[in-house]
């Protein structure tokens, strides 16, 4: 098997870091959505090019993604500086300058912003992401025959042992757990595995209504997700893999970034 060169290893590390960046509306990784268009590495400097399904995609969401890209990539120990390069967007320059120079959303957008640097928006989408992940694992448990009483009483330890198969629920299991712990809703094995975002335990009697609420959250997010994926593949006629690609790293990760982008700013 071919050995990874140092650069390829770094590219792979950047891709993994980008897996942690999600489209805030969809809670899907930008790498899965095909938003990442290219990665340039020069020593400790990394530039990540990304693009969105339409020219009109909300600049606030673009900004959140750009900030997260920079943060996640700069968290890699060998990275000294990460830059983003949003392309083909009505506010590409503002987003790129704002994130790369650390100006912040409000300063970048001036009168068009309303003054909290996107923190309220970020918090709102955090709740939705939690709910979507939670619904997926809840539905799986129900389909597997757990009663609502058993689900309500399930501990984190039991959750960890539960088999979620290989589909969507299996993919959401660690993602749900991560948010559960990060929010402090559960800390150790004996703690309940399921609570609302506000911290209330789920009850067997309230389970059906609660799942109804979560379903609406998912319907909204799926609408965006399905539309975004289709619009994106329409806008950028996705290139078939030629002889020159994909690179080893893409092959290993099952992903194919686009052509190297033009220099951004």
């Amino acid at each position: 098997m071919e050995r990874l060169t140092a650069t390829e290893e770094r590219r792979r590390a950047v891709w993994r870091a980008l897996d942690r960046v999600t489209d805030p509306e969809l809670d899907d990784p930008i790498t899965d959505m095909g938003f990442v268009d290219g990665i340039e590495i020069a020593g400790g400097s990394v530039e990540v090019a990304f693009r969105l399904p339409t020219y009109w995609c909300s600049p606030n969401f673009a900004y959140l993604m750009a900030e997260d890209i920079r943060r996640e990539v700069e968290a890699l120990p060998w990275v000294e500086q990460a830059r983003v390069c949003l392309q083909d967007h009505m506010f590409a320059d503002k987003v790129n300058e704002g994130v790369n120079d650390g100006t912040g959303f409000d300063a970048s957008f001036g009168d068009m912003a309303s003054g909290d640097d996107l923190s309220a928006l970020r918090a709102k989408f955090e709740v939705k992401a939690f709910q979507r992940r939670q619904e997926s694992v809840l539905l799986h448990l129900r389909a597997a025959g757990c009663t609502d009483a058993e689900i309500a009483a399930m501990t984190l330890a039991a959750f960890d042992l539960a088999d979620f198969g290989e589909g969507e629920a299996a993919a959401q299991k660690p993602r749900y757990r991560e948010m559960l712990l990060a929010k402090g809703l559960a800390r150790e094995g004996a703690d309940l595995a399921f609570r609302t975002w506000e911290g209330a335990p789920l009850t067997p009697a309230g389970m059906a209504d609660y799942l109804g609420t979560l379903r609406q959250v998912r319907i909204n997010m799926e609408f965006n997700g399905a539309l975004c994926r289709r619009l994106k593949s329409t806008r950028y006629k996705e290139a078939e893999l030629g002889e020159d690609g994909p690179g080893l790293v893409d092959f290993m990760l099952g992903r194919v970034p686009g052509q190297t982008p033009p220099a951004c700013i």
């Binding site: 339409t54 009109w56 995609c57 909300s58 600049p59 606030n60 959303f105 409000d106 957008f109 068009m112 912003a113 309303s114 003054g115 909290d116 640097d117 996107l118 309220a120 928006l121 709102k124």
Partner: peptide
């Protein structure tokens, strides 16, 4: 989709 205020939903 709407554009403004940019930092709202």
């Amino acid at each position: 989709p709407t554009i403004l205020p940019l930092n709202k939903d």
